[in-house]
Simulated scan of single mutants.
Amino acid sequence: MSTAHAILRSYRAPRAVLRRHLETGAGEERALAWVMAAAALYFVAQLPALSRKAHLDPDGPGFDALAGGAFLGTVLMAPLLFYGIAALSHLVMKLFGGQGRWLDARLALFWALLAASPLVLLRGLVAGFIGAGPALLLTSLVAFAGFLFIWINGLIALERE
Rank of each mutant, 00 (worst) to 15 (best):
F71M: 11
K53V: 06
S140V: 09
A112G: 08
R123G: 04
K94A: 03
R12K: 04
W151F: 15
L138A: 15
H90F: 07
I130V: 15
Q46D: 09
D64C: 13
A39I: 07
Q99E: 15
T3A: 11
L137Q: 10
L119V: 11
F71K: 01
G84A: 15
F43R: 00
I152A: 13
L113V: 02
I85E: 07
F71G: 03
L91W: 13
A145W: 11
L50E: 09
W111L: 02
A39E: 08
F147T: 03
V142D: 05
A112L: 06
L109E: 01
A31I: 11
A40Y: 06
L109T: 03
R123E: 10
L155T: 04
G124K: 03
L91H: 05
L148Q: 12
G27W: 04
G131D: 03
S2W: 14
A105Q: 00
Y83P: 00
M1S: 13
F110H: 13
I152E: 09
G97T: 12
G154D: 01
A78W: 07
Y83W: 15
A16G: 10
A33R: 09
L41G: 05
Y11G: 01
L136G: 05
G128K: 03
W34C: 04
V75M: 11
L8R: 01
R160M: 15
T74R: 02
G98R: 03
F63W: 13
V92Q: 01
L22E: 13
V35K: 02
L107K: 10
E159K: 04
A87I: 04
Q99W: 08
L91Y: 10
V17H: 03
A33L: 12
R12A: 12
W151Y: 15
L56R: 11
D104K: 01
A45C: 12
R19E: 12
A65S: 13
I85W: 13
P14L: 05
L125T: 05
G73M: 07
A49Y: 08
T139R: 00
L88W: 13
A54I: 07
P58R: 04
L113M: 15
K53P: 00
N153S: 11
R106Y: 00
D57P: 05
A40S: 12
L95A: 14
P134H: 07
I152G: 06
G62C: 14
V44K: 04
A127P: 00
L72W: 10
S10V: 09
E159F: 09
L18Y: 05
A127E: 08
P118R: 03
Y42Q: 06
E23C: 08
A40F: 14
G25D: 05
H90P: 00
M77T: 09
A87R: 03
A39S: 11
L138N: 08
A67H: 12
D59Y: 11
T24V: 14
H55W: 14
A70I: 01
E161P: 02
L136M: 12
A116M: 04
A127L: 06
A33F: 02
F43L: 13
R12G: 01
I130N: 00
A33Y: 05
Q99K: 15
F144W: 13
L158Y: 01
A105M: 02
G62Q: 09
G97I: 10
I150S: 06
R101Y: 03
L80Q: 01
I130L: 15
W102K: 05
L91F: 06
A39R: 00
A4M: 14
L81N: 00
T74C: 09
L32I: 14
W102N: 05
G98S: 07
A45R: 08
A115M: 13
L119K: 03
L22S: 10
A108K: 01
